[in-house]
Amino acid sequence: MEPIITIKNLSKQYSGKTVLNNINLDVYPGSIIGYIGPNGAGKSTTVKILTGIIADYIGDVTVAGKNLHEDLLEVKKMIGYVPETAELYDLLTPYEYLGFIGKLYHLPDHVIEERSQRMLDSFGLLANQHQRMDSFSKGMRQKVLLTSGLLHNPSIVILDEPLSGLDANAVIMVKELLQVLKQEGKTIFYCSHMMDVVEKVSDRIVLINNGNIIADGTVRELKQQENETLEQIFARLTGNEHIGSKADAFASVFNTNAPTE
């Protein structure tokens, strides 16, 4: 099978500091990649390069045979992106916003109308579709954001903390949605800090630290012991096994020098 995303020797620097250091990665269609790493490891830089937000990098990124440097617009048409920062034009209503986004992909009006209605309905947001989003809760915005990322039926879906702010029911729904999308042959790039979720949904884990991929494989392959969780794997590989003692140190602040309250 041909990989749908190929990243070759990808490097990126900001003012002399290396953020991505020679990353190589092949992603195959119909799989869910759990892309994890500590804060500042280079995760979101990778995602921003893939989605075309950052354009100056060293190396080659190919999506479905198209080079990102040469066919950026074609690549963007295939990708659906849900950014971590829930930035959307919140002075608009979901109806207006989705209409706007749909037109950027040149979707006909009736298609936008039908898809957005059905998607919002699944999220239980149909009643709010003519309400301005600046009054929305974080979860409601996230639902609109997810809808706007999937509206054009992308073959690659890049999700950055897609569950943030969602209520429990919506979380279950999105997790199931991921499986359905995968069965349809879509590729999902899943970035998150919630290890238990990543462990459950991903076919393959890619762990990045200090701009390098330090682990790549299924959860089973990464385990050293039978009952090790992804959380523990993460702590082991990113060199932070003494977290427990740090938490103690943090809490002990109140015991030593807080006489007043």
């Binding site: 989605t51 075309g52 937000i53 617009l73 074609e74 963007k76 048409k77 990708i79 992106y81 950014p83 920062t85 930035e87 959307l88 034009y89 986004i101 950027l104 992909y105």
Partner: peptide, 13 residues
């Protein structure tokens, strides 16, 4: 600044 997330990932030249 919002445009970065709303417009840049879309197929707009």
């Amino acid at each position: 600044p919002k445009e970065k997330y709303v417009l840049l990932p879309r197929p707009v030249n």
